[in-house]
Simulated scan of single mutants.
Amino acid sequence: MTRKEVRRQLALAWWRQLGYTLVPLLVMSYLFGDGEPLWPMLQMPLFIAALVSLFLSLPLFSAYKRALVATEAALGRAEEPGAWQELARRRGKAFLAAGLPAWIAALAVLVGLNAVALFLLAMSSLVLLYLYRIPRQLG
């Protein structure tokens, strides 16, 4: 697989992950946003849990950055295909942590979490996902 094809595949994976991250929140908001909250006393604990989940991205992001540097160093050498695979593997794990705030927000719709808090959690996941885009300099 050429470098251009790998970059295209990684770009498509990023867009797919963006959908996997934000669509559940949009669907839950559409289906249950106007309903009566099930357990309103869980609003604050779920919001705090979503904020704490942001910290799960820290070690995964540093591992992703190390893989990014290793991939850049391997460009044009025999190790390049393996470096791209390692980068994709590390980024896949980091995607899961980046999606947590939005997924917790999707659950928080059921307990009646306010729209501003839902928006902030969705944006935090979006910002984390943006960090995992493949830079143009790589390739």
Rank of each mutant, 00 (worst) to 15 (best):
L31D: 01
S125A: 06
A50P: 14
W103K: 05
L18D: 05
E5Q: 11
L12W: 08
L18W: 13
G35W: 04
R3H: 06
A49Y: 12
G139T: 06
A102L: 03
A67Y: 05
Y64E: 12
M41Y: 08
A74T: 10
N114R: 09
K93C: 06
R16E: 10
F61S: 04
L128Y: 09
W84L: 06
V116Y: 07
L120P: 09
S124D: 08
L118T: 06
A98N: 09
Q43V: 13
Y130F: 08
L12K: 08
G76N: 10
L12H: 09
A11P: 02
L107E: 07
R136M: 14
P101E: 04
K65T: 15
L68C: 06
Q17Y: 08
F119T: 15
G99V: 00
V52S: 06
Q85K: 15
G35E: 13
P24T: 01
Y30C: 14
E5Y: 00
L22M: 13
P24S: 02
L42N: 09
A115C: 06
I134S: 01
L107T: 13
W14G: 01
L10T: 05
A122R: 01
G139K: 10
V127I: 15
L107I: 13
L22P: 11
P59V: 02
G99D: 12
L110E: 07
R8E: 14
L138Y: 05
A74D: 13
